[in-house]
Amino acid sequence: MQKMLHDMVETYGDRIYRLALRYTGDCFQAQDITQETFLRAFQHQNRFDRSKPAGPWLFKIATNLCRNWLRDSREIPVSYSEEFNQSAAPGPEEHYLAKEREKVLVDTLHQLPVIYREVILLKHVSELSYYEICEALDLELTLVKNRLYRGRKMLKEALEKQERWI
């Protein structure tokens, strides 16, 4: 049992953490969500079909936890997390610009409707395949493709609009 947990953390831990971090913008909150995901997976392992990969199931739990977090903290705006801005910018000016761009990215992401945001996060942050996203969100393949396309389009347009001001 412990080995299964260890393997799951090794394979999916960081990807779930990144998803939660982008969702919440807070590294402690993201660690809590990641830990709760594995804890729930461990407690309900009898519900898990071992003939299938654990990824989509874990991401389903993580997404539900993130949604709960969003529901409980609706009035708290998601803030920019330093954890994402670890790129070694050469000088202070570049560092400042990178920080500003990151801030704009987070703001823009959180302006997107949640149905598009989730698909984008699962694809671009957690690097799931279409099939895995379908499984994690209980959606039809066409719907995933559609939301991904519309979400990406909205994100790019909103980013272009925002970055004109930097």
């Binding site: 947990l5 831990g13 660690q31 990215l105 396309y149 994100l155 790019k156």
Partner: peptide, 24 residues
């Protein structure tokens, strides 16, 4: 172009070392 814009969301953030210990 749309994909590269969304790819900016990707990151290299990793879980802290003591994560697995706390979880177990």
């Amino acid at each position: 172009g749309l994909v590269s814009a969304a790819d900016r969301l990707g990151s290299e953030a990793v879980l802290p070392d003591q994560f697995y210990k706390t979880l177990t």
